[in-house]
Design a protein around this nucleic acid. Structure first.
Length: 426
RNA sequence: GGAGAGAUGGCUGAGUGGUCGAAAGCGAUCGCCUGCUAAGCGAUUGUAUGCCCUAAAAGGUGUACCGCGGGUUCAAAUCCCGCUCUCUCCGCCA
């Protein structure tokens, strides 16, 4: 959510910035509604003031055993008018809030203008693409032939886009996750969190998944009173850890890492990436989440991205890092780096991590603030997160980059401690 | 699933219709005192938001908030209704 006062005072700037996202929003209506809200507020507060002071007088008279009927009668009309205005105010605020929740974040000044993902800006590449003496296969063929990925049975027991891992495949997935968690907790200074995988509506709204992207989530209700959602990413529970809190500046930055399953309805992506592990309704991800002061958040974004890249470097998987252009940026993000791993079986780079600075966009929605040490003033924190990394897609990258002509897969050195002596999956 | 108790400021905890944004204590900050520390003394100490003032802050003023939502009343932390959460006991359970 953006600051309404900021929108009011910088309407043209906001309009122009949102335009770069390919958005055309009616800010004028929004501004007019805000004006209406302030007018009603002024009127109702004046009346409340009157009522408060008269009520006080009534109390004083009654104490002195004096007659107050005429004062009381005088307030009858005022109270009903207040009630009317309160209703009108509530309606206006609800509508204003509804509109405010649909306005995306403003891209950072370093974000390049673009219209599609083709305009994303290449930041750096790492690693040498392996030269194969045979045509490398896509992971779904490798996985099925080795009997470690079972797409047919995943579809049988649940449906499309669900997969069963078996034997060494399950072990590999577990090893990759543990390797990532150990790297981030022991070397990068993150605190491990194991959050609930179901969250309430407030949490989903706080990080920006709701109200706009409701169709992307799985919703769970045990009865009419529960309104829970399967987490689409650990970002939701972990960022909401500090919702409606005021943190101390001395505790910042806060670094969290969480390994969780992620559930995505993937509405609107029918027919896309239908084969293999790339686009699933359920997948595992190790997520990095940071809370930072505003002045440090862009430095923290660089560090977070490097922490994510380190996973691929240790696994010796070639990748490239791109900065998303204005149109490709997610709803809540001010700036995003995507890490794209090389997938030789598909002859393409695939996104394996997305690292974003949300500035105060999520903090404002979720009311996550901190107190300045020097003057005690309260400000919104900046929130950041990034995959470190998507576990399933990392397994895909390993299978495709480490495959041999006989169909076996060599275990990357970095993972050997986690695979109990297994050197090769055959 | 059944029965009961509770939710008040950073914390403990008083407050059952009016002068209560809320006693008292603790903590914190500032000042005084002090060789240092401790003790003592004094002051300050919630959040949001409208308006005024300001370059901006500071400041002034109004309003709201005592788990959340609604109701009664001239007036609600206090009374009524619904909900959520916490705790205790019983049952069930990995």
């Amino acid at each position: 959510m953006l600051d309404i006062k900021f929108i009011r005072q910088n309407t043209d700037f906001v309009r122009q910035k949102l335009y770069t996202r390919g958005q055309t929003l009616n800010l004028d209506g929004f501004i007019r509604l805000d004006e209406k809200r302030r007018n009603i507020l002024q009127e109702v507060e004046t009346l409340r003031n009157e009522r408060n002071s008269v009520s006080k007088q009534v109390g004083e008279r009654k104490k002195k055993k004096e007659d107050a009927t005429e004062l009381i009668a005088q307030m009858g009309g005022v109270s009903s008018r207040i009630k009317e205005l309160d209703e009108e105010l509530a309606e206006t605020e609800e509508e204003l809030d509804r509109l405010a929740m649909l306005i995306p974040n403003i891209p950072h000044e370093s974000v390049v203008f673009g219209k599609t993902s083709d305009d994303n800006h290449l930041i750096r590449t790492w690693g040498e693409k392996r030269v194969f003496s045979f045509p490398p296969k896509p992971h779904w063929e490798i996985g099925e032939q080795l009997g470690i990925l079972d797409f047919a049975r995943g579809a049988k027991i649940t449906g499309a886009r669900f997969t069963v891992y078996r034997g060494a495949g399950a072990l590999l997935e577990r090893a990759v996750a543990n390797f990532m968690l150990d790297l981030h907790t022991r070397e990068h200074g993150y605190t491990e969190i194991l959050p609930p995988f179901l969250v309430n509506r407030e949490s989903m709204t706080g990080t920006g998944q709701l109200p706009k992207f409701a169709e992307d989530s799985f919703r769970i209700g045990i009865d009419d009173n529960t309104d829970y959602f399967l987490i689409p990413t650990a970002e939701v529970p972990v960022t909401n850890l500090h919702r409606a809190e005021i943190l101390d500046e001395k505790d910042l930055p806060i670094y969290y890492v969480a390994h969780t399953p992620c559930f995505r309805a993937e509405a609107g992506s029918y027919g896309k990436d239908t084969r293999g592990l790339i686009r699933q309704h359920q997948f595992n991800k190790v997520e990095l989440v940071k809370f930072s002061t505003p002045e440090n958040s862009y430095g923290e974004l660089e560090k977070l991205t490097i922490n994510a890249e380190e996973v691929l470097k240790r696994l010796c998987i070639p990748f490239q890092t791109v900065s998303l252009c204005s149109a490709d940026l997610g709803f809540s993000a001010a700036k995003t780096y995507d890490l794209e791993a090389w997938m030789p079986g598909q002859e393409t780079h695939r996104e394996i991590s997305s690292c974003s600075n949300f500035e105060d966009f999520q903090a404002r929605r979720a009311s996550i603030r901190f107190r300045r040490e020097e003057n005690g003033r309260i400000e919104f924190v900046h929130t950041l997160n990034g995959s470190g990394l998507a576990v399933g897609r990392t397994v895909v990258a390993i299978l495709e980059n480490y495959q041999e002509e006989d169909g076996s897969v060599v275990v990357p050195d970095a993972l050997k401690p986690y695979l109990h002596g297994l050197e090769r999956i055959t």
